[in-house]
């Protein structure tokens, strides 16, 4: 299977080829890849791609996966509608 057909981040449709090209451009940390390709920034917040990208980075850098840092975890844990947040505020007051 070619790198073009291997989807790494399904939220943003990023393939293994995209990841490798970006690493060759000099972006060799997870935070850099995230900012160039939006991996880990979609609705699943990297729950699918982060381990795969960690392995890609390790492979590219000749390191063991466990020394590669993944991206910062940010709130929210799951997507919440703005109007639901407002409804929550209204209920409390």
């Amino acid at each position: 299977m070619s790198d073009k057909d291997i989807i790494i981040c399904r939220c943003e449709d990023i393939t293994r080829e995209d990841i490798r090209k970006c690493m060759e451009r000099g972006f060799i940390t997870f935070e850099d890849l995230k900012r160039q390709l939006r991996v880990g920034m979609g609705p699943c917040q990297g729950q699918t791609c982060s381990e795969l990208i960690k392995r890609e980075l390790a492979d590219f850098l000749g390191e063991k996966p466990d020394v590669i840092n993944t991206h910062k975890t940010r709130p929210l844990v799951i997507g919440v509608k703005l109007k639901s947040i407002k409804a929550g505020v209204d209920n409390e007051s």
Partner: peptide, 17 residues
């Protein structure tokens, strides 16, 4: 958001920083 643009209130927040 709900005051100015109620329609945007329908959207899900996925991340903040």
């Amino acid at each position: 958001v709900c005051d100015i643009m109620p329609k945007i209130g329908e959207l899900r927040v996925i991340r903040q920083w």
